[in-house]
Design a protein around this nucleic acid. Structure first.
Length: 614
RNA sequence: GGUCCCGUAGCUCAGCUGGAUAGAGCAACUGACUUCUAAUCAGUAGGUCACAGGUUCGAAUCCUGUCGGGAUCACCA
């Protein structure tokens, strides 16, 4: 039991003694005292005044007096209006620090005996990962780390969309214009190579389309409609119809998809090859980002799943059949629409697949809780999916969450990979490392280490800047990313937090062998920074639980920044190694050590590594 | 049109289970490196918390409505 929980129990006891009223300790509001006031923690007495029938100020005095007499934690008190400010005994601070210092993995929650799956990334195999994926991947990875720290057992997965018309476009373009090029013979990263052909297809297709627009056939199409008068505007919107009805390239791509579905060997061969190039490229990017998956699922395996569950649901009466044979679910009573779950020709849809994959994962891993990290444009889809699974009475249906996040846009608008208008993940990662290096070289620090070590440090700093930049923001917010304005390395950033850690590491190296963490109790004259830091440290476990409950990496990011900021301030005012009094010096080193541990641990929850020097 | 998300300093964002005078960073200006790493610290300046009502001893926070931005409402994924 932490000292604060004990204090709350003491307060409840005091109230009981004074009024006879039973109060649930956890309903008490206890927060750290604002720095303008005297005291360490503050109890809000407004809500308690009614039990006493006296003014909040008087009530504060009564409780304060009682606590001073009965609680071992409380040394003194003062009241201002309805705020009861409590000052703690010196032992509280040293004991708390020692407890933090000696607890292994301080902050980690007790095992919850529940397995949670986090699905994220889920890329298409026709182009490289881009900035949008980065937000997804960082969120997913961080949430999985946070869940783990909160006490869950975590499984990470991705569903790779490796089939469909998009990949056929790349395949077709490679066949037509590729001239046998491969990642091996060209030295180009596989996902970029395939992505180039995807763009190539689309530029060729656009050419074909604009040529067609002057043909008689096109004239006729335009005349046969009278919804849009402006010709250019009409053809702008007609592009998809053209692809499906008139385009030569479109028909070739569709034929390729048909061949793939019929598993024709030549097509399968090409498909397998190109997919392996892309997946290989993805693995390199994942490595750089430091993420990995317990298991990857492939849509080419899962796209037919879900049908048997639909059949089962039909029998149960959850679904119904239309005259044409298509199967539907009516969700109007849950304030949603009717939704098709199986086509009239018996084939699966996106939602059918998702029903099937959920079931498959449950069977594979026995996950009773599932988190899907997917963009907010799919909110409705997941609302429907979760409702369907509930009606099908799946055992995991009660604990499903769609972690939805806002789109990442460029200043010029949305990214369009078809037009090659994207910020590639790899480019961004490299750019960040270069940025970190340029910054370091300008400052002329990090000397004495080898090139290899230095590059490793630059990588860690660059990645920290990028990851923190993205994770500190509430996922729901849309974000506009300007590649021209580089990500900051100063201020509220990843490197700022790394710097606090590095400073401590430097102190610890210098102090090596000259201190004893067990000998701190002689120190009693704590300054406000020290109390403040210990208070912040002791709230770490709570922060983790809250971040897990709310699926909110930004809560951790803000916490870690706050801690680093407080430490930087402390560092600038107190000369730790120069402390004369022995137990004070030990205390300060112990405190610094704990701060470093928690900074490292918290950053790890964001997927950010710490350098030992920078 | 229905539903959901967002709106806080010039910019990027915290704060939202109601509590004391709304906080950071960036950008601007001023100061601090012979002293544990200045990717730091201290300071100046910057606010009708989109707007209007309501609940409350107390509202950026809760409720209702309005406005602005975005998403979504396919036998696409």
């Amino acid at each position: 039991m932490s000292a604060l929980t004990k204090l709350k129990a003491d307060i409840a006891k005091a109230i009981k003694k004074l009024t006879g009223q039973e109060v649930e300790p956890k309903t008490l509001t206890l927060s750290s005292t604002r720095k303008e006031f005297e005291g360490d923690y503050t109890l809000l007495v407004f809500p308690l005044a009614r039990y006493f029938g006296k003014s909040p100020e008087e009530v504060g005095k009564l409780i304060g007096e009682e606590l001073k007499a009965s609680s071992t934690v409380v040394d003194d008190y003062n009241t201002i209006k309805g705020f009861l400010n409590l000052s703690f005994a010196p032992e509280y601070w040293t004991d708390t620090l020692t407890a933090i210092n000696t607890t292994e993995n301080f902050g980690k929650g007790a095992p919850k005996d529940k397995r949670v799956m986090v699905e994220f990334s889920s890329p298409n195999t026709n182009k490289p990962l881009h900035l949008g994926h980065i937000r997804n991947i960082l969120l997913g990875w961080s949430v999985s780390k946070i869940m783990d720290a909160a006490g869950y057992e975590v499984i990470t997965t991705q569903v790779v969309n490796d089939r469909g018309i998009a990949i056929c476009k790349s395949m077709l373009a490679w066949e037509k214009w590729g001239d046998g090029i491969t990642p091996e013979n060209s030295g180009k990263k596989g996902d970029f190579l395939v992505g180039d052909f995807y763009v190539k297809f689309n530029t060729e297709f656009s050419k074909e389309y604009s040529d067609w627009q002057t043909s008689k056939e096109a004239e006729a199409v335009f005349k046969n409609q009278n919804e849009i008068q402006d010709k250019a505007k009409f053809f702008d919107e007609y592009k998809n119809n053209y692809f499906n009805e008139y385009s030569k390239l479109g028909s070739e791509a569709r034929q390729m998809l048909l061949k793939w579905e019929n598993k024709e060997s030549e097509t399968m061969e090409l498909w397998k090859n190109m997919n392996s190039w892309v997946l290989n490229g993805f693995d390199q990017t994942y490595d750089k980002l430091g993420v990995h998956f317990t298991k990857s699922y492939f849509e080419s395996d899962t796209y037919i799943l879900g049908r048997s569950i639909v059949e089962e649901g039909l029998k149960k009466g959850v679904f119904y059949k239309e005259k044409d044979g298509s199967i539907w679910v009516d969700l109007t009573d849950a304030n949603m629409d009717k939704k098709i779950v199986l086509r009239s020709d018996g084939t699966s849809l996106y939602i059918t697949q998702d029903i099937g994959t959920a079931e498959l994962r449950y069977k594979d891993f026995n996950t009773e809780k599932m988190i899907y990290v997917v963009g907010d444009e799919q909110e409705y889809h997941f609302k429907v999916l979760f409702e369907i699974l509930k009606r099908l009475e799946r055992p995991y249906a009660s604990d499903m969450y769609h972690l939805s996040y806002g789109m990442v846009e460029l200043p010029t608008g949305k990214m369009k990979s078809r037009e090659g208008k994207v910020v590639d993940a790899d480019d961004l990662i490299n750019q960040m490392t270069l940025e970190a290096r340029a910054n370091a070289e300008e400052k002329g620090i990090i000397d004495g280490s080898s090139d290899k070590e230095r590059n490793e440090i630059y990588r860690k700093i660059g990645m920290a800047a990028l990851k923190f930049f993205i994770l500190k923001v509430n996922p729901k917010r849309r974000m506009i990313f300007n590649p021209e304005e580089s990500v900051d390395l100063q201020g509220q950033t990843g490197p700022y937090i790394q710097n606090a850690y590095v400073r401590i590491k430097s102190i610890m190296r210098k102090a090596e062998g000259t201190y004893d963490f067990n000998d701190i109790s002689g120190y009693k004259d704590f300054n406000s920074h020290e109390k403040n830091l210990i208070t912040t440290l002791s709230s770490y476990p709570n922060t983790i639980q809250q971040a897990a409950e709310e699926y909110e990496p930004s809560a951790i990011a803000n916490y870690v920044y706050d801690l680093a900021k407080k430490y930087h301030k402390y560092y600038s005012e107190i000369r730790i190694l120069g402390t004369e009094d022995k137990s004070a010096r030990n205390f300060r080193l112990a405190l610094s050590y704990s701060v470093a541990q928690i900074l490292k641990s918290g950053m790890d929850l964001l997927g950010i590594e710490m350098p030992e020097r920078m």
